[in-house]
Design a protein around this nucleic acid. Structure first.
Lengths: 93, 93
DNA sequence: TCTATAGGCAAGTGGCTACTTGCCTGTCTA
DNA sequence: TAGACAGGCAAGTAGCCACTTGCCTATAGA
């Protein structure tokens, strides 16, 4: 299991999570084109592919094969480890 | 303002936040010794100092001077940007 | 079957970053 | 005021990481 925090450290990977949060279940090429169109990304397919691998290692993205395409899904459950680790409940003191 | 995610990417920095969460308001030397004693850290004073600077840049640590010592406080408010960014409310679906 | 499509694998490269090292500044106390 | 104590500054180094490049595998459709 990869490091969730390290996976989140890269801005491109965070944008990928944004994109999947907006439209879940995209293929690699869909993510590439939508990232370029809507987020002004210049990353190549290989770069995105490697980023997705890191996100998958960290458990933030799950994927399933469908023929020759690979569908990617967002999984925010690992983020709970961040929320639970430090006390967030100090609103006003 | 520094990058909160990048600040959290380093395990040593996360341990510093753990330590401050347990006992808030410590000096640099206190953090150093307690990190070595209780967390098995081997980091030098300078390393810790630089980590604290990164955490302060990210707003996760606030500090105030008290004579020749510098007291460090935990500030978890920047963590909210992580929690609010992606939908955490998918418990079972 | 041939070709286009969707994606994977692996080596190489440049830049960032954590850490070290050495020295310096400011503050308290005897 | 001298020395100990708390911390800062800055240059250098080594390892990691994002990205590229080139080639390969597998599936779908004509």
């Amino acid at each position: 299991m990869g490091d969730v925090f390290k996976a989140l450290a890269d801005p491109t990977r965070r944008t990928i999570l944004d994109e999947l949060a907006e439209r879940d279940g995209q293929s690699l090429f869909e993510i590439c084109s939508r990232l370029a169109m809507r987020h002004g990304s210049t990353s190549t397919r290989q770069a995105i592919s490697q980023h997705l691998a890191v996100l998958e290692e960290a458990g933030l993205v799950r994927s399933r094969r469908e023929g020759r395409t690979k569908i990617h899904h967002l999984n925010t459950e690992p983020l709970r480890s961040i929320v639970d680790r430090w006390p967030l409940h100090r609103l006003k003191e």
